[in-house]
Design a protein around this nucleic acid. Structure first.
Lengths: 179, 179
DNA sequence: TACCTATATGTGTCAATACACATATACTTA
DNA sequence: TAAGTATATGTGTATTGACACATATAGGTA
């Protein structure tokens, strides 16, 4: 049920279409809660039925019309109530860590390649976070409404840095092995 | 499809029953890949049908009989093949980070309480990792088969430490606010 | 005696998620 | 000209996952 809340969170930022939301999930909130576009479109319909969002069709020529969604007062109330419920513990699902548990039964060369790829991915993600921080939060103290986003970025950076350190150590430890 | 691989990974450690696996998932591999007991029992049946595990019923008096599962050569082969496929990117799903994005529209007092609870949970998890390291890896260099487990622990510690730092900073930043 | 916990294995069912497919148009690139 | 990309909204379906319920026994506790 938390995807609906994540969508409401996005729509407090500004009214958006399903397409906008899908892109937003790919570049922003999706770092912490992933969603695909069919999921988003279906959830938007449910939110409309509950009265938490209202839609408005934007006529476009050539391209398909956009259906833009906006949070209602009831939606804002739902958001507030959700924020008072205890947070679910963070879920980690990581293939790589699972493989590590059976290190003697797997292909070690493949493992090294996978950690190398992971290292690159985490570096890229960190660079992206830095880029977002530089363009959005370059000038001193953030506005009150942006504080949470900055804090989210900072956690992301902490997370990526942790992974980068770990990958480097892991490669150093695995490299000497012959196979 | 990756739960079956996680189970195979566990069974390379030693033969286990579904009940054993469920407990193992709660205290070990489950840090990186969560599973409930009905999921595990169903998956074990599928693994049996594929010939990746064989089962052996242990007759017990009083208590229900245990069905102990053991990896076959085909299972070990499947594990090896799985280890050569590229790893799926780690999935993060975190309610708290989502809430942070709408900081102006949520209950800030509840948020502070939630971060405080999170901090305690991460400290507890870190302590648990330290405990496991102390009892399992106290004596210098680990055996080759245990290296991956130690590395997994180290990543877990890095992760928990990152969260603990972040929570402390976050509370310091949110505390001064009046509401 | 009644309840709780641990051991041990399941079924039934609903919600969440992933992923392929479907449709329509305009613009850019090879 | 053909193919690919971007815009925009969906459907259909299979897999995964969560959670309540079901059953059976032994031992400890209130």
């Amino acid at each position: 049920m938390a995807l609906s809340d994540a969508i409401l969170v996005c729509l407090t930022e500004r009214p958006m279409s399903g397409y906008d939301l899908a892109k937003y999930f790919d570049t922003s909130i999706g770092f912490f809660w992933h969603a695909t576009h069919p999921q988003i479109y279906r959830e938007l319909k449910k939110l409309g039925q509950r009265g938490h969002v209202v839609s408005d069709e934007e006529i476009q020529s050539g391209k398909p019309n956009r259906i833009v969604y906006c949070v209602t007062d009831a939606g804002r109330q739902a958001l507030l109530e959700w924020s008072r419920k205890p947070v679910a513990p963070a879920v980690i699902k990581d293939d790589l860590l699972v493989r590590l548990q059976a290190i003697e039964h797997i292909d070690k060369r493949a493992l090294r390649q996978q950690i190398t790829a992971r290292l690159a991915a985490h570096r890229e993600q960190l660079a992206q976070y830095h880029h977002i921080r530089d363009v959005r939060f370059s000038d001193g103290e953030p506005e009150p409404g942006d504080l949470g986003k900055l804090m989210g970025l900072e956690l992301g950076m902490e997370y990526e840095n942790g992974w980068i350190n770990w990958c480097k150590n892991a490669l150093a430890r695995l490299e000497p092995a012959g196979d």
